[in-house]
Simulated scan of single mutants.
Amino acid sequence: MREQYLRAAELISSADALLVCAGAGMGVDSGLPDFRGDEGFWRAYPPYARLGLRFVEIADPEHFAADPELAWGFYGHRLDLYRETRPHDGFTILRKWGENKPGGVHVFTSNVDGQFQRAGFTDVAEVHGSIHHLQCLAHCGAGIWPADDVVVDIDPESMRARPPLPSCPDCGALARPNILMFGDYDWVPDRSQRQLDEFTAWRRTHRSIAVVELGAGRAIPTVRRQAELASAANGNLVRINPREPEVRHGRGVSLPVGALEALTILDELVA
């Protein structure tokens, strides 16, 4: 393992820019729940176990129309959780590495929790949107707006939200998080697309990029694919993942541990 860490540190140290590709595993060390599998989700949210509702079912946009109190019970709780969560020290380590490089640091993430922005990152591409922003369920043309003032009152026993529920400031219809959910054809992608356009422009202007991928699984491989694509030319990929650490064709370094542990060790080695 020592050799793997040394090789990973060399890849990071020798690059002119840093790309952080992060999946849900990045937040585990901050205390965020692991929704991997139905059992993991039900441990985090026992009321849904009693109802027999799986994560892919509750994270479904149809509930906002059919049962908005149920939908906002889940997303309102997550909004509060993410607001209260302090990013772990690994975020600070990554930001420091990027600030020491001429090309800086950019983040590509499927996470909707806003933890990177809270940790001080400014260039973040949130490919699945953000729970800290809302959109109108009635498609009135209001666009996307911040959820900064949104407070959702939730019954902890039933995990149902109590009225009033978040509403559109333009037309008064029900609002929903600006998140790409399962089977979601109503998501408004404008904000995320602007971020992705900025990310693409940054990538095109920087050739010597080290890619650090953290906690990105195969089930929804968006982040893994981006990390592999961005490192295809030079093989400068550091994959940190305790469950699915394999790197295809030896094109990078595999560290089969959690994000905070790996970053803490690497920080002692990165020049």
Results as ranks from 00 to 15, higher is better:
154 I>Q: 02
4 Q>N: 14
265 I>V: 14
159 M>L: 14
69 E>K: 12
150 V>S: 00
8 A>S: 02
50 R>A: 11
192 S>Y: 07
159 M>D: 06
115 Q>R: 11
185 Y>K: 12
188 V>S: 09
218 R>S: 12
10 E>C: 02
76 G>W: 08
133 H>R: 14
90 G>C: 04
250 G>A: 04
49 A>Q: 15
229 L>S: 11
256 P>N: 03
256 P>C: 00
39 E>D: 15
143 G>W: 07
223 V>R: 11
241 N>F: 01
122 T>N: 09
223 V>S: 06
58 I>D: 04
211 V>C: 04
80 D>R: 15
180 L>Q: 14
167 S>D: 07
162 R>G: 00
168 C>Y: 03
166 P>L: 09
171 C>G: 06
98 G>W: 05
91 F>M: 03
92 T>F: 11
214 L>W: 11
220 I>T: 14
165 L>V: 08
256 P>F: 00
39 E>C: 08
253 V>D: 03
173 A>K: 03
7 R>H: 11
17 A>T: 00
202 W>R: 02
145 W>H: 08
97 W>K: 01
10 E>M: 06
55 F>L: 15
161 A>I: 03
228 E>D: 02
46 P>Y: 01
57 E>F: 05
46 P>F: 06
28 V>S: 12
243 R>S: 13
210 A>K: 08
247 V>E: 05
264 T>D: 06
3 E>R: 11
131 I>W: 09
33 P>S: 08
238 V>L: 07
215 G>F: 05
43 R>S: 14
166 P>Q: 05
50 R>P: 05
26 M>R: 08
9 A>K: 10
225 R>W: 11
123 D>P: 00
234 N>H: 12
219 A>E: 05
167 S>G: 09
56 V>T: 13
142 A>L: 05
172 G>A: 09
116 F>M: 05
142 A>D: 10
120 G>T: 11
118 R>I: 10
181 M>R: 07
227 A>K: 06
70 L>Y: 08
39 E>P: 02
239 R>K: 14
18 L>A: 09
36 R>S: 13
154 I>D: 05
151 V>A: 12
230 A>W: 08
9 A>G: 13
254 S>I: 07
18 L>N: 03
227 A>F: 01
262 A>K: 01
232 A>I: 07
97 W>I: 07
85 T>D: 06
144 I>Q: 02
198 E>G: 12
252 G>H: 01
71 A>V: 08
54 R>I: 03
43 R>F: 10
251 R>N: 12
54 R>P: 10
55 F>V: 13
49 A>L: 06
147 A>P: 06
31 G>M: 04
9 A>W: 09
60 D>A: 11
88 H>D: 04
255 L>E: 00
242 P>C: 02
173 A>T: 03
159 M>G: 05
110 S>K: 06
207 R>D: 15
195 Q>V: 02
